[in-house]
Structure formats: C-alpha cells, structure tokens
Amino acid sequence: MRVAIAGAGAVGRSIAEELLSNGHEVLLIDKSPREIKLDELPGAEWLLADACEIASLEDAGLERFHVVVAASGDDKVNLVVSLLAKTEFGVPRVVARINLPKNEWLFTEAWGVDIAVSTPRLMSALIEEAVTPSELVPLLAFPSSNANLVSIMLDDGAPWVGVPSAAVPLPADTALVAIVRRGSVVVPSDKTSLAAGDELLFVTTEAVEEELSELLTGEG
C-alpha cells in the first residue's frame, strides 16, 4: 500500500515508521527543511514542499496513492490537504488529524475526510477508560459513515461473561470487531466466549450507544 503523509513532524514520522515496519511504501511531505530527516527514516520517500499547493501534490504523484494522512499540527492545513487529496486527486482513503477539539465539526466527508483522529479526544477516552473501565468509551469517529469505534471492558459481574460472543443480542448497526484479551487481539468467532477483563471493541452508531452500554453492563 502506498501512503502519503502531509506533515513530517513527530506525529507524521511516528506514523511513517509504523507503516514502513509493516511493509508499506511511505512518502513524507513537509515544507520545513528542519523536518526532513532522511537518516531517521531511510526507507521513506521525502518531498520538501507545501502540501496545500496543488502543484506540490502533482509533483508527489498523489493520484498514485491509496491513502493520504493529513498529520500536521495545523487543522487548517489538514483540512486543505484532505479536500485536495479527495477532490483533485481521487485518493480512496483520507485520514486527518484533529489538533483542536473545537474544530472537530469541520472534519467531515464534505472536506474529503474519511477518518478523523482527534488527539485530545483519544487521550480523553484513554483516561476515561482507565478511570471507569466498565463504561462505554468512544475512541474514533468515521465521518463518512456516521459510525463510531467504541470500547468497553467487561468486569466480573458483567451479564455476558462466559457467553459466546455470537449469542449476545447486539443492537442494530452494531458489530463486535475485536477483543483485547491479556494483551493479545482476538478476532471474535462463533466459538469465542467472553471473559472478565476482556476489552471489547465495537463499531456502532451514536443512536444505539446507550442501548449497547446497558446491554453489556446489565444496567438501565
């Protein structure tokens, strides 16, 4: 998979390092010479250019990429990059970083964003999960589909402990996509039974999140 990352700061480089380790091709774009650090990521391609300019993205051959990640520390830049990637170059998947929570409402399909990742929201969610592990915690929003990724940890008293995951009557528009169990990821199947301490990851909609929470905790 070919991935272009606009913004070669600490966040962009970290994403690139992870993608490279998984065998993907990565191009990092940044207009600041001090962010071009060839020695840190020798396996990546680099482009010293302004990712908000169409000419720069043409030089990058953005139409050849499967994913664009707008990862700069400036929300305005990330919105412009997302819009250009989607409308001018037809990139199939655009992921955008949100730096300021007040700007979340802008990061939608109208601006070319398929997945919006809010750093403050993720940090808040992780804190909530640590403090109240048996409550439903929103992790990620998918603007193009109106769906959310949420998690909940089953405690000893949860009503579905010991029950096969396929037997849990989930609300409409809800799917259990993964179980994190003792540090490992389990892909749920018909034979997978839920256990105390499992962290369940669901894709669902906001309309049924309360129903899902009540189902899993037995409260309500």
Rank of each mutant, 00 (worst) to 15 (best):
A110W: 05
W111I: 07
W111P: 07
W111H: 09
G112Q: 14
G112P: 14
D114M: 06
D114P: 08
D114T: 04
D114G: 02
I115H: 00
I115D: 06
A116E: 07
V117N: 10
V117Y: 04
V117M: 07
V117H: 06
S118G: 11
S118A: 10
T119A: 06
T119V: 14
P120T: 01
P120D: 01
R121V: 14
L122G: 00
M123Q: 06
M123D: 08
M123P: 08
S124G: 15
S124H: 08
S124C: 08
S124F: 04
S124L: 09
L126P: 12
L126C: 04
I127W: 06
I127P: 09
A130P: 04
A130M: 05
A130N: 02
A130S: 03
V131Y: 14
V131Q: 09
V131C: 05
T132L: 13
P133T: 11
P133R: 05
P133E: 06
P133H: 02
S134A: 09
E135N: 13
L136W: 14
L136C: 13
V137Y: 10
P138L: 08
P138G: 14
P138S: 12
L139P: 08
A141C: 12
A141D: 14
F142K: 04
F142W: 03
F142A: 03
P143S: 01
P143G: 00
P143Q: 01
S144N: 11
S144W: 03
S144R: 13
S145W: 08
S145I: 13
S145R: 06
N146L: 06
N146Q: 10
N146V: 10
A147Y: 12
A147P: 13
A147Q: 11
N148W: 15
L149C: 00
L149M: 05
L149G: 01
V150M: 01
V150C: 00
V150E: 01
V150D: 02
S151M: 11
S151W: 15
I152A: 06
I152P: 08
I152Y: 13
